[in-house]
Computed example of a mutant assay.
Amino acid sequence: MTIQTGFIKLYRDLVDWEWYTDLNTCKLFIHCLIKANYSTKKWQGITIRKGEFITSKERLAIETGLSISKVRTALDKLLSTKEIKLEPHTKYTKVIITSDYFDDVDFQVSENSKQNNKQNSKQNSKQSNKNLAIEAQTNRNLVATTKKEKEENIINRKNRFKEDVFALTNFSNKILNDFYNYWSEVDTSKNLMRFESQTYWELDKRLDKWLSNEKSAPLKSKFIKNR
Rank of each mutant, 00 (worst) to 15 (best):
T2N: 14
T5Q: 11
G6I: 06
F7M: 14
L14T: 07
E18S: 13
D22E: 12
C26N: 15
C32Q: 06
K35S: 13
N37K: 11
N37I: 03
T40Y: 01
T40C: 03
K41W: 05
Q44R: 15
T47E: 14
R49Q: 13
K50H: 11
K50Y: 04
G51V: 01
E52I: 02
F53Q: 15
K57E: 15
E58Y: 13
E58D: 09
R59G: 02
L60H: 01
A61S: 14
G65T: 05
S67M: 09
T73L: 14
L75E: 02
L75P: 00
L75Y: 02
D76W: 07
K77N: 13
K77S: 09
L78M: 10
S80E: 10
S80M: 05
E83R: 03
E83N: 11
K85T: 03
K85D: 07
K85F: 01
P88E: 12
K91A: 02
Y92T: 03
K94W: 07
S99Y: 01
S99W: 02
S99H: 00
D100R: 11
D103A: 14
D103Q: 11
D104E: 10
V105F: 00
D106H: 11
F107D: 06
N112Q: 11
S113L: 08
S113A: 13
Q115R: 13
Q115L: 15
N116Q: 14
N116I: 13
N124Q: 15
S125L: 00
S125F: 04
S125C: 04
K126D: 09
K126R: 14
N129R: 10
L132M: 07
L132N: 02
A133C: 12
I134Y: 05
I134V: 07
A136W: 04
T138E: 12
N139A: 08
N139L: 02
E149Q: 08
K150V: 00
K150P: 00
N156H: 11
N159E: 13
F161K: 00
S172K: 09
N173K: 15
K174P: 00
K174G: 03
L176V: 02
N177K: 09
N177V: 02
N177C: 06
D178M: 05
D178G: 05
D178L: 10
D178H: 08
F179T: 08
Y180W: 09
Y180M: 10
N181S: 12
N181E: 11
W183Y: 12
L192Q: 07
M193L: 14
E196P: 00
S197W: 04
Q198G: 09
L203W: 08
D204C: 06
R206W: 04
L207S: 01
K209R: 02
K209A: 07
K209D: 02
L211V: 11
N213R: 12
P218E: 07
P218S: 07
K220E: 08
I224C: 06
K225E: 13
R227M: 12
